[in-house]
Design a protein around this nucleic acid. Structure first.
Lengths: 183, 183, 183, 183
DNA sequence: AATGAATGAGCTTTCATTCAT
DNA sequence: GATGAATGAAAGCTCATTCAT
């Protein structure tokens, strides 16, 4: 997966993968373990997805925190950390989604959709019955999106310049979510 | 550029590019016009960048609008439209940045950095002297990031599920920026 | 011919030849003047051969000299000079003779055979009736060959090391030819 | 090496080499054994050079012969035979020396220089202290050159016409060397 | 289970040659 | 007479995949 993320699916040759796996490069030993190159990618994606169950429920980040601000801050940090730990997967998805939509489409949707939905649900719980589902969904999109964009820019698009500190982002982000909830 | 964005740099063969350009595929006619395959990409990136001057100054979207809400809404719509019109470029950047950082690095930074900086400046103008540069930069990152993420998800990562309507996003986004400015 | 001698027939492209001839490279302007690439080589060879009439008669080198030693020395110097001035042709012949034997075979034979024969005749004249044709031919081969080899080594095989001065060679060579004649 | 000598380095395609080696032409199977086309030539040259140790010491040709004439005749025949057996190498050298001077330069010098030097040393031994090194070197150049030229003409330049029999050449050549030594 | 070797297909690039302008 | 452009063919080389050992 590291090779796929760095060199792209086409750019990572079977020989390189074999070498990285401790097999003799170019000997085809990989085919004892995978049916084809595409199966290697599929298996890698699948393994990444298994680890993603965690991200699906952003709520768990809050643990036993009771204060809203603390809950939100924990959520933000957890979300950013999870995105960072999934950098390889995101890079592969961004590169190959248009070549293998069937294989990768499910992965993206699982990664993003369930996270957004989970946070929307939490928002509704936190705000009480005054917040309808659609609006909760909108707030979730805006709120998580502003965090997500920092990671997509840095980890996927390779933007290095002019980044704002995470602490700055998070403290303003907490205010914004509070504001959106209170309204 | 369409071929590069759909199939990736390695996946788009010279023969396919020639065919798409009306040349006989595989005959190398392209080399009368470009020195190498990489030069084709460089020229395409360069041409895209020339068109990006518009995006650099998000302020121009507001035109003669005087009311703050209207200004912000125009800005949001303009930003989203520009991102949509640069879909190809974003897809290529996301796919190839790790292979050709020298060639593409400038493009990403020009596209993103100048836009963020420009919006931060506008925020300072709108908020008056109470808003320092660092905080303006933070707000710009959060605000534009939440819009940007919708486009990166849809256009780059291919996320199709569960998108919220632009109108919903924008109306909440305007409120958020107002809140951040007023505080 | 310079290009052919330096890069070989295959290595010298039509575009390079056009450029060297002041035509725009790759435009095919050369085909107004020659029917094919091979015709360019043929014309070049032909032009070189026209200049070779001189070499055919080594006798002319001696001019009005009467003393045998002086005649021989003049012959040797003339022969070496001619070989040097035909370096390009020799390089091309050595490189391409096996590809275009029909085209180039005549050239080599004209260059060498007539020279050897001419010197053999002169030897017979100089030695008087005691020297039969076959032996004159043998002496010519040995004598001219020892001069020729220095040029083939240096100009065709690119041997740079350990060459003996021409003056040394020539003075011993004159002695050798005298010895062969006198016997 | 046969292909290189007949068609030249550029003219011998990888596909032809593969075919000649029993591989399926154009499949690139050769690249499992050589890094590049140039490496094939380098390996071939290197293998030829290993066999050239013999030629370096022309003295060995004389074996236990005691009579000078017999020694010289054996030397001449040995030298001519070695040159004939290195025809391929000489043809390649003559064709490609100007394209790959680094690769081939060593080969020519090893082939020629050491042979000339070795014969010069033998001449000094045979003539006694009256023959200084420079003159021995000159004689070596003239004597071996006259033999060499017959092979370069025939094997490298493809001259077919008017060759003198080896026996004729050798018998006169022995006389010449004797004369040069005795003087 | 692993490897050296092989192969069909395809890649980027070069080139001799042609041709409308 | 010269040129920009085009093209069929072929070059060197890479690679996913197969297979006997």
């Amino acid at each position: 997966m590291r090779l796929f993320s760095v060199k792209g699916y086409k750019g990572a040759s079977i020989a390189q993968i074999e070498k990285a796996a401790g097999l003799s490069p170019g000997a085809g030993g990989l085919y004892r373990h995978f049916e084809s190159k595409e199966a290697v990618l599929a298996a890698g994606i699948s393994r990444h997805l298994d680890r993603l169950d965690a991200l699906r429920d952003v709520r768990q980040a809050m643990g036993t925190l009771v204060e809203l601000d603390a809950q939100l801050e924990a959520t933000a940090r957890y979300f950013l950390d999870e995105l960072d730990s999934q950098t390889e997967l995101l890079q592969i998805l961004a590169s190959e989604i248009r070549q293998s939509p069937a294989l990768l489409g499910a992965a993206v949707n699982q990664l993003i959709e369930s996270t957004y939905a989970s946070f929307a649900e939490w928002l509704q719980d936190a705000a009480g019955p005054g917040l309808d589902a659609e609006r909760a969904r909108t707030i979730s999109t805006i709120a998580l999106g502003s965090l997500l964009s920092t990671r997509l820019l840095r980890n996927v698009l390779g933007v290095t310049s002019a980044s704002v500190e995470d602490d700055e982002i998070i403290s303003s982000w907490v205010e914004v979510v509070r504001f959106l909830l209170d309204r």
